[in-house]
Design a protein around this nucleic acid. Structure first.
Lengths: 192, 192
DNA sequence: GTCTATAACAAGATAGAC
DNA sequence: GTCTATCTTGTTATAGAC
């Protein structure tokens, strides 16, 4: 019970304040326990962070796997749209997750920055490649313009990351409204 | 002399470690002075940060103003490309500036987060509007598809932010190579 | 402007009692 | 598992000498 609450609340603190900025005392306080009690669950702040990161990675990977399966039967262009919609919606619907992930990618904890980034890239590589494969397929089917598929896959992620970034900065602004325009522009750009 | 060095070195520390993560002792140490000497120049860590932020804002605004003037005589589509190239190049050529700006927008110092974000939006609004005006012009000239200009301006910034984000994460990767593909996809998407 | 010295405080971490 | 109490370190900040 406390263990679940701990991860949930710590996730929010890491997301809002970053690894270095999050205070174990504040986290414990919000749970209703004292700071030393956290050490009954994890040997260090970093181990707590690592456990949460692992959970989030599993969750993110499940999302991609399911999205790839559920969109399999769609026409190539619609499949690409569906994937973008699912992944962007995953983050748009959860500001905490979104902030946690952006911080994880861009400013990981200094002491483990190298290994964290490496593991994230390893995690993401299959999805970039599968995206490139889908684009390749679209080119063969004469739905998309001839182009380097991997570059377009990077452009896909570029757009996704830009959306997340602006959704965090312009919190009041409803980016769900802009998203369709942003996406349709991209799709028109690659379509034949 | 020390004053210039102070801002220069502090900028790098803020960029690499964030406001909360940067240590005045480390900054002083790198300059070759002692920590308390910083307080001869600024009354607090936040005032030092504010002075640097102000400098960077001036620098960024000059870039936009100059870019808008120097591109004025170009055809609308080429002008848009030039603007994207100038602004993305500004950050791509200086990782420190890039990291500082991303942190400033996404995770500003907590104590002043509200007012900083507000001033950044105020700073950026004219450029979004001028971009929308240029796109409007392109639509009138039948160079671009009919579309809501402001939404496309947002898409422009979305792409720019996404590029910056990925350039920070994938440091080894040469995104200068991908950038032309990313941009040309966007341009094809809005062109008639 | 810069220094030494020090105050005041918050953080992560640990020991030992219950 | 949880607590109180304590240790260590690192931070902002200030006072006062040069």
């Amino acid at each position: 019970m406390t263990a679940i609450k701990l991860k949930e609340i710590a996730l929010r603190h890491f997301a809002e304040n970053g690894y270095e900025g999050a205070s174990l005392a504040d986290i414990a306080n919000e749970i209703g326990i004292k700071k030393p009690s956290i050490y009954a669950h994890y040997a260090s702040k970093m181990e707590l962070f690592a456990a949460i990161t692992e959970d989030e990675k599993v969750c993110y990977c499940s999302l991609w796997e399911e999205a790839l399966i559920s969109s399999e039967s769609l026409p190539t262009d619609q499949r690409l749209s569906a994937l973008f919609s699912i992944v962007s919606g995953y983050f748009a619907g959860d500001r905490v997750k979104m902030a946690f992930w952006v911080r994880l990618w861009m400013f990981p904890p200094q002491e483990e920055a190298e290994s964290i980034l490496q593991s994230l890239k390893k995690m993401n590589a299959p999805y970039i490649n599968q995206l490139a494969a889908i684009i390749s397929q679209g080119i063969e089917q004469k739905i998309f313009r001839p182009c380097p598929p991997l570059e377009v896959a990077h452009a896909f992620f570029c757009l996704l990351d830009g959306y997340l970034m602006r959704a965090i900065c312009y919190q009041g602004f409803d980016y769900k409204q802009s998203l369709p325009h942003i996406w349709s522009t991209f799709l028109l750009g690659i379509k034949l």
